[in-house]
Design a protein around this nucleic acid. Structure first.
Length: 900
RNA sequence: GGGCGCUUAGCUCAGCGGUAGAGCGCUUCGUUUACACCGAAGAUGCCGGGGGUUCGAAUCCCUCAGCGCCCA
């Protein structure tokens, strides 16, 4: 017997272990079935399961379970990425907390050992948690971006792209994180609004004593590296100064005034100082005007004078080399203060005004990034992006919803060289070796590099390997094929690449999506890495706020699973995942879906306690009773709706279709109609109701399994639809042939309408539930009376009716009435009902019918409508008008009957 | 500044040319033996404002307003 109350915790772990043990999650490369592949966008190895994961992995699991049931050879391959910066930070923090040596003291090899040790201990957190969610991942195929195999793929790709000229070394400005001491990519930089100040400085014009060029800046400390002042070429105010020179205060360097459209006459003073080595815009100006580009900040963003020491020159009242020398080694913000103070003393600081502006910050380190001129490795993203753009343009890859194409195109068409080197230890060390003369050898192994060097120099030379590692996204970009064993020619690569769909959030389009496309198409002979890209929203709290620790509105998916069950959480997620919308998910939403899971459980309990048992031989095509035919037909429609919804990635519609059929059809009506039969005598009718019940319950369990795998599997097993843990491998339901479906639908729909009307009448005229009445039917067609007779047991029970009789003559006094189709049904309730309430009720119903009729009359009275609208629309309106008029007439008659 | 999205019942959202819907909430009623994580009934809408296209607009177009996000 099923327990009276549903306790998901009592079976979730057992079922998951059962599935996993039985190999139900495994793909079958040797099989004949058509593959269905989803590559997990690898979560960060330092992460733990949050609501965003719960969302994306629930959707992925729903798709995978559904396709698996459809007979596809599903591969959902799990794994994590090594998260270079995040992991290194975690382990460094750990070392500090343990009171251990820091990484520089312990050295690279020892530090990396420690990271691997951490990975072994803590790296499995998220993969363990995914099991709680029910994610049916092919665990034995789990991969990690630092695995031997994936590292081989990284070497192959790096070396190949280098030989193709698509990876190169360059000295450009990079986003430098002065806290983490590494370059980071544009995408790892976030603008934050900062309340700062804007200062106006006075730069003396050379050879014109007393004349100054006023420049506005938010970063006065970089002035030490200024090599020009730019004004707009068409700005008349400064035309006479273009080509002149100014003296750089404090430093004493003579710098030119250049005309460059970058300078905005509307902003600040219209003249802008140019520091090419410390600002991206200034760098471009510097290149245009062939300016020197001295660096004045060291990696930790402290003042460094090496590149300007030779330029320092004392100028009376303007420049002070001793002061500048004293700044060496000072932090950028301390230096700013000192410089401003000194400029003020010299009378060269004109104004200081409050100013709010966007300041780039490193998203990991959290400090303002510092553009720095450094040598880094770059990937020619613009070239790699072209085939990916074309593949989306011509439909070989499809964004769902489509509008995300715009975001993708906008970024891809203006993509910048991708800085792929990082000054970290944890990651794939760049396979580049330097000879003493600076020659670079890029090879997969040191031995190959040595051989290449020997070939070049005619003798062995000492080689030093590049210390840097690659951006984590470089290895993640290879995920769709590196996880399948590439570059080895494995059967998996041929079979599971391209994937069918990548599921991810819109915030990740530039990271995984774009990069996987670029690398996939380049290395897999132009083949796209996945056909569909399903983009879902972000999880927010019930008020629509982004969840964050600082706001304190985070919900823990594991805690929700403990409280309500994984199925409730998953069903809530599916229900709320509409197209192109964020998912607002409060605790209440999960609690509400638990009620649905419980409802299903209780419906199953009803079936069990009424002797419904599984009968695989039961043939729906042989069903003869309207009730069986009706519920089978309704199930067919639910199957069609659910399948269409999943095909369109409409998780909300899939959940809604399942919900409606389960609750509003199966529970509310089928079970109620079945009760009189099941309580009655044994016979063919009862047998058929049981047969239909077991058949449809089985359909329901299969239909709902992708969304709520645990409770459906538990019920499937308990009822004996199959062996333990077999629902996951059961066939996705398909429409069953049902004879006479239309007639059955008409019949049952009529009964539903009759019962609903009777209930409404009773409720509105305040008939106590204890009072039962006969039902007098006037003007009923013979078929309606016959139906009433066939369903008298159900109508009695659901409408609190004693008997049904046709009424030919006068209606008794004090009836409550309702119109059902062509018939008027009357409940003789003299003395019980409030006649005033009944009259009001009928009048209101008549009003509704009249309004409806008026609207349709107006429509049909419009000659243009009749002439131009499609014929079926016009006919439909004529029929509706007729029905509305007939209803008005019947209601008028009903009102007349109880008049006065 | 450029781009995208949103604005429909108290709340969360479907619907996207042809009769305005769901869930939750609310009100009333309910010990009918699956389920109170339940059942029955009910109320609630200038479909953001304005203009246009159309026989017909919540739905298509323009415009304005507000909100949110992304990129500068």
């Amino acid at each position: 017997m099923l327990d009276k109350t549903l306790t998901p915790g009592s079976f979730e772990t057992r079922l998951y272990e059962g599935w996993e043990r039985s190999g139900a999650f495994a793909c079958h490369p040797e099989g004949a079935a058509t593959p269905f592949t989803i590559m997990i966008p690898p979560p960060n190895v330092t992460g733990s399961l949050h609501m965003g994961h719960a969302l994306t992995f629930t959707l992925q699991d729903t798709l995978v379970r559904w396709r698996r049931m459809q007979g596809r050879d599903a591969l959902w391959q799990p794994g994590t990425d090594h998260a270079g910066i995040a992991t290194q930070m975690v382990v460094e923090r750990l070392l500090a907390a343990e009171g251990n040596q820091d990484r520089r003291t312990m050295g690279r090899a020892a530090f990396l050992d420690r990271v691997w040790q951490w990975k072994a201990e803590s790296g499995g957190t998220i993969t363990r948690q995914l099991r709680r969610l029910g994610a049916s991942l092919d665990w034995p195929r789990e991969r990690f971006t630092m695995d031997e195999g994936l590292s081989k793929a990284v070497l192959e790709v790096f070396v190949t792209l280098h030989k193709q000229g698509l990876i190169y070394r360059d000295r450009r400005l990079v986003n430098w994180d002065p806290k983490l001491l590494t370059a980071i990519s544009d995408l790892e930089v976030e603008s934050r609004e900062v309340k700062g100040q804007i200062w106006t400085l006075r730069y003396p014009v050379e050879g014109r004593p007393g004349e100054f060029l006023r420049v506005a800046t938010t970063r006065p400390e970089t002035m030490l590296g200024d090599t020009a002042v730019a004004v707009h070429p068409e700005d008349a105010r400064f035309a006479h100064l273009v080509g002149q020179r100014v003296v750089l205060p404090l430093v004493g360097r003579s710098i030119p005034v250049v005309a460059d459209a970058y300078s905005d006459p509307e902003k600040g003073t219209g003249a802008v100082k140019i520091t090419p080595a410390h600002d991206f815009n200034d760098f471009e100006v510097g290149k245009r005007h062939d300016l020197a580009m001295p660096t004045v900040l060291d990696p930790e963003a402290r003042i460094a004078l090496e590149e300007i020491a030779a330029d320092l020159r004392a100028v009376d009242g303007v420049a002070d080399p001793d002061f500048v020398r004293g700044l060496a080694g000072q932090d950028r913000f301390a230096a700013r203060k000192a410089i401003l103070a000194r400029l003020e003393e010299l009378g060269l600081l004109e104004t200081a005004e409050p100013h709010t502006h966007q300041v780039p910050h490193g998203d990991r380190g959290g400090v303002p990034i510092e553009p720095r001129l450094t040598w880094q490795w770059y990937c020619d993203a613009a070239t790699l992006a072209k085939p990916a753009i074309a593949a989306v343009e011509d439909g070989r890859m499809r964004f769902v919803p489509k509008q995300w194409e715009n975001t993708f195109f906008a970024w891809m068409r203006d993509i910048q060289p991708w800085c792929i080197s990082r000054q970290l230890w944890w990651g794939h060390q760049i396979p580049a070796w330097y000879a003493p003369d600076g020659t670079i050898f890029v090879e997969k192994t040191e031995a190959e590099a040595r051989a290449a060097a020997r070939a070049q120099f005619g003798q062995d030379v000492p080689l030093a390997r590049d210390e840097d590692v690659l951006d984590t996204w470089f290895s993640s970009a290879l995920w769709p094929f590196s996880t399948l064993g590439w570059p080895a020619p494995t059967p998996e690569v041929g079979r599971y690449y391209p994937g069918d769909v990548l599921v991810t959030g819109f915030d990740i389009i530039f990271f995984w999506v774009a990069r996987m496309m670029m690398m996939g198409m380049h290395f897999m002979d132009g083949a796209v890495p996945f056909r569909d890209i399903y983009i879902h929203g972000l999880v927010r709290d019930e008020k629509g706020q982004k969840m964050s620790k600082s706001k304190g509105n985070v919900m823990d998916p594991l805690e929700l699973i403990d409280a309500y069950g994984a199925d409730a959480l998953r069903f809530a997620i599916c229900s709320l995942t509409g197209p192109g919308r964020d998912v607002k998910l409060g605790r209440k939403a999960v609690e509400d879906r638990r009620a649905f899971v419980t409802k299903l459980w209780n419906a199953a309990r009803f079936c069990e306690s009424n002797g419904v048992v599984v009968d695989p031989a039961w043939d729906p095509a042989a069903a003869r009773t309207p009730l069986a035919r009706w519920i089978l037909d309704a199930a067919n429609r639910a199957v069609a709706e659910a399948t269409a919804a999943l095909e369109a990635y409409r998780f909300d519609e899939y959940a809604a279709a399942c919900y409606r059929f389960t609750w509003n059809t199966f529970c509310d009506w089928f079970i109620e109609f079945a009760k009189p039969v099941l309580n009655g005598e044994d016979g063919p009718e009862k047998a058929e109701v049981k047969g239909a019940a077991q058949h449809v319950l089985g359909t329901l369990l299969r239909l709902l399994h992708p969304a709520i795998p645990f409770v459906t599997e538990e019920l499937w097993d308990r009822f004996g639809y199959g062996p333990e843990c077999s629902l996951i491998g059961a066939a996705w339901p398909e429409a069953a042939a049902v004879a006479g479906a239309e007639a059955a639908r008409e019949e049952l729909d009529w009964v539903v309408r009759l019962v609903t009307e009777v209930r409404a009448v009773r409720a509105e005229v305040n008939v106590p539930p204890s009072v039962t009445t006969p039902l007098l039917v006037r003007d009923a067609a013979p078929e309606s009376l016959a139906r009433a007779g066939r369903w008298i047991d159900a109508i009695r029970r659901l409408g609190r009716v004693t008997e049904i009789a046709p009424l030919a003559g006068e209606a008794p006094k004090g009836v409550a009435q309702a119109v059902v189709g062509e018939a008027t049904v009357m409940l003789p309730l003299a003395g019980v009902i409030d006649l005033g309430a009944e009259r009001a009720r009928l009048a209101k119903a008549r009003g509704v019918a009249e309004t409806d009729a008026r609207k349709i009359e107006a429509k049909l009275g419009n000659a243009d409508f009749v002439a131009r609208a499609p014929e079926e629309v016009v006919d439909e309106n004529r029929e509706r008008l007729e029905a509305a008029r007939a209803e008005m007439a019947r209601l008028d008659a009903a009102l007349a009957r109880i008049a006065g």
